[in-house]
Design a binder for these strands. Structure first.
Lengths: 356, 356
DNA sequence: CTGAAAGCGCTTACAG
DNA sequence: CTGAAAGCGCTTACAG
């Protein structure tokens, strides 16, 4: 038998009272005289009483655990997310069980099932791109882009893109290359769409999708950014600090000085953004706030279930939607445009990138 | 009442057998005729039966959950670790509950307690630097440096340092600057110690500890690496890819070409290592293997407890110790020394950096 | 091969 | 204000 401290019965016995009374005293729901209650609490404390979650769960039907499912834990943003959620959940008295769906959508469903089998009360899912999460039989909060149907909480990526675009615009950039890893991602589309919108019609934007495939050693993995620079692009705006690093590094190596000759921007404020020379101008999500909102929404839903009769269904769509602002972090990788460019009246109208 | 599928009793009832029989059939422990067993399994499947972990936990005293406590989830290596552990654990039928101790040692103990209260069967802790984990009342596997007392599983950081040092040595580097974030970390000391040992007596090594404090905007956060280069250092070996990035970036910006003029190496093979130009030569841990060993050790211990009488105590020290080799990933940031340096017979003997 | 019964630790009506 | 009792869903000896 593993470590199991004293149970309710032991402490009841040692005080000559009933377990019901001990339970009532400890849960502080009144019904027990102040004097006895104090005595019980003291003894429980002394005996190092720790309630059995199993017993409680069996009785109440609640495990006090929230599941966190991630499309891919290896996501560099994951630490921030997990930390924020773990914090918010434990503040609220909940534990966090993780499940990683390592890419594939089928695995995502498996991950969800695993969590469900463990009896999580609710879950937070950060879905794989383009995946749709239906009703799951427990409250679900989706953290994704506001453009994702069923999204519950998220940073406002479009708004953030707008701010980033405006920053670039104010610096005089009129020809910017947009870099992202794929157009299936709502998050990325929103970010880029916002940037493009803020830059306005007088600006020329091109989008370069960077494949995720890792190049072999020796193989050329250049993005040809120097060529874009030569064509007059003065800013390279990306959907992630990782891409920004790639751009920054490639440009620098090609002898283009950042930020005096070209500006580079990222997203997410990863640790690396503070460590490059120059440090990256980026956009930070308020993850703690997002996590707090997601957890709060879930718990409210749970409490509702307690009181009311059966909810019609716990599809994520019904969850309260909330958007959290992102914060522009201006560091050293952006600067005013120095070279004077001929104004190029190029009409650009990228397909399907309008805000939903 | 939240989502609760059919219980054992429902399926027993619908088949006109006892719950005991259903339980026996489903757990596959024999005792039930093949024919009935098959019928039961089929019905359970059809009815979408999912066993209640709470009931099982209450009865067996096991939750089937392993706790994962991290010194700081925001650690860039965390994704790899968490992913590997989640995978190993779920393969073994266990769930993973996370707890973050956000730095402070006191919070580390709190995080552990939180997990204990949730009734985890065992835990894996990646301790904060210089922290010591005592007996906890449940099996514990420590993942740290082998130099840490009580360590259970880890990469062999010294060995890895040796390999990295040898790589540099073979390239002709005899004057290398070592960069790490602090000497309290056994992991870092091991890595650097190994590098130094491989470089041997003829090499000159200096160590530069990089404070973790973040510089304000505008503030100079240069490490003065160009100065070291000027003094004849040809290689910059760091304890982490993040530091390597910082070195690479600073050197490049100072106009020093990598790898033709100086080599830079990292550790951990973070995502960023593949994205810089040149890409970083680094050292990869076999996290899946480490996770697998840690989980396996824990489960063996748990099974032992099942059979044998009370274990004397579950201090981590008793856990099987295992070292996992790291793998050198040679990419483009290292190259043979080109400038010819006068041989400098400088005696170096840094204090307290010997292998324990 | 199958089933009746006990019990894991808790909480919650319900009496007293 | 306090306690006896039921029951959450499971598994495991123990009978039959």
């Amino acid at each position: 038998m593993p470590r199991s401290g004293p149970r309710l019965s032991r402490i009841a016995q040692s005080l000559g009272v009933s377990v019901a009374t001990v339970s009532n005293a400890l849960s502080g729901k009144g019904r027990v005289s102040a004097e006895l209650s104090a005595r019980i609490k003291k003894t429980a404390e002394e005996m190092g009483y720790v309630p059995s979650q199993a017993g409680r769960a069996l009785r109440t039907g609640r495990t006090g655990v929230i599941g966190l499912v991630l499309a891919d834990i290896a996501n560099p943003l994951f630490p921030q997310i997990a930390q924020a959620i773990e914090f918010a959940a434990s503040e609220a008295g909940y534990g966090v069980l993780i499940a990683d769906s390592r890419g594939a959508s089928s695995l995502q469903m498996e991950a969800i099932d695993r969590l469900l089998e463990r009896g999580v009360d609710a879950m937070i899912v950060i879905p794989r791109r383009g995946t749709r999460i239906g009703a799951l039989g427990c409250p679900v909060a989706l953290i994704d882009s506001p453009s994702t149907p069923g999204n519950s909480v998220s940073a406002d990526h479009w708004e953030a893109g707008l701010a980033m675009g405006q920053h670039l615009r104010e610096l005089g950039h009129r020809k910017v290359l947009l870099l992202g890893s794929g157009s299936e991602s709502n998050v990325q589309n929103d970010r880029l769409g916002g940037i493009r919108a803020a830059l306005g019609k007088e600006a020329v934007c091109e989008t370069l999708w960077i494949a995720h495939r890792k190049p072999r050693n020796g193989e050329d993995f250049s993005l040809g950014l120097a060529g874009y620079y030569a064509r007059g692009f003065t800013a390279f705006a990306t959907t992630s600090d990782l891409h920004a690093l790639r751009a920054l590094s490639e440009l620098q190596r090609a002898g283009i000085s950042i930020p005096s000759q070209a500006s580079v921007t990222g997203f997410d404020d990863l640790a690396l953004a503070e460590v490059t020379s120059p440090r990256l101008t980026t956009m930070r999500m308020d993850m703690p706030r997002i996590a707090e909102l997601a957890v709060k929404a879930l718990i409210e839903r749970l409490d509702l279930q307690d009181v009311g009769e059966r909810m019609p269904s716990s599809s994520p769509v019904e969850a309260a939607q909330a958007k959290v602002a992102m914060q522009l972090v201006v560091r050293d990788s952006t600067a005013p445009v120095t070279r004077s460019l001929p104004y190029q009246a190029i009409q650009e109208n990228p397909a399907g990138e309008l805000r939903p």
